[in-house]
Design a protein around this nucleic acid. Structure first.
Lengths: 170, 170
DNA sequence: TGCGCAGATGCAAATACTCGCATCAGCACA
DNA sequence: TGTGCTGATGCGAGTATTTGCATCTGCGCA
């Protein structure tokens, strides 16, 4: 379906909706905060959405879509798998959570807070390093300056070979 | 399976095998070149592998795994879908092809040549810009310097909002 | 050239994710 | 508060990808 990109903007409401705020929104535990955030983006507040955000206990915890589905299903069995996937996509676009492919077969989602971080993953040993956002920030700035493109780099996973594995095979 | 990373190095041969050459390897059309490249990496030369690389007609052409499978299947119907997926993964690790999630539901593979490029994709309008590797190179260098990590950034897809969509919603 | 082992493949099932469509329900407006 | 429109959800089917295991085969070695 390479020529079909309609799904890319299929949950935008009217004028200005979906705009990511300039100031990062600190993830709140309260339903009220999510409700306000959704309404500000022209999105509806539904019990499903509240539950799905609630599945993220704390920032820093990685969850796959299936794990979110399992947690939510324990509380409200009627919630559908598709709704979970679609809602995670929405939250990602709103900047509430990050979505990352850590190379483990399923994408991981995480509450987004101000202390952004990224990962370096070794394809040889599987080891994972934390990459400071300070290293990534210049890329964001350069893209903004050169292309006027507001890029979202919230939780990058980059692959390669760690120092140890390079040494081991040289 | 978050704790299982054994698959990350399951197609490495003995000593030094799997090492990516410092000098980029220009993708060759000839089976001989692939054979030499595979043997140098301690990998076996099989008809399946030759066919799968052959599916990439030219650099610059994006193919999904299913498209590769379809092309290869037209020539040799016996080749299995799993083999295609596993072989693409191998070629990616050897630096022969790039793997990118362009947000279209299936990952795209492309022959890697020296003129690396990346993509900026607008989540609002679906538009795609080409991002010059010159902008990304400093990140690669910074990671190498700070972490001693040899990162592979061959074909990045970054998402965000293009200049026009920013303007339209402000 | 023949033998054997480790790695590659085929197969089938399981998991991960996407999509179209009918129905349902927030929320704007009367 | 009631009504209707539009976006959200449930559902089911389809596509994409991964995995374990049995079998097969490339290639090093005798």
């Amino acid at each position: 379906m390479p020529s079909d990109s309609s799904h890319l903007n299929n949950h935008r409401g009217p004028a200005g909706v979906g705009t990511r705020p300039r100031d990062a929104w600190l993830p709140g535990r309260s339903a009220d905060e999510l409700a306000a955030r959704l309404r500000a983006a022209g999105q509806r507040v539904t019990p499903q959405r509240l539950l799905i955000l609630g599945a993220f206990a704390r920032p820093g915890e990685h969850l796959t879509a299936e794990e979110v589905y399992a947690r939510v299903g324990a509380l409200a069995p009627a919630i559908n798998r598709s709704t979970v996937y679609r809602t995670l996509e929405l939250f990602r676009d709103l900047g509430l959570i990050t979505e990352t492919d850590l190379g483990e077969g399923a994408r991981h989602y995480e509450l987004l807070d101000d202390g952004r971080h990224h990962h370096l993953i070794c394809r040889d040993c599987g080891g994972m390093l934390v990459l400071d956002d300070e290293i990534v920030a210049p890329l964001r700035a350069a893209i903004q300056e050169r292309y006027g493109f507001e890029v979202t780099i919230d939780h990058l996973a980059l692959f390669g070979r760690c120092k140890e594995c390079q040494r081991a095979s040289s």
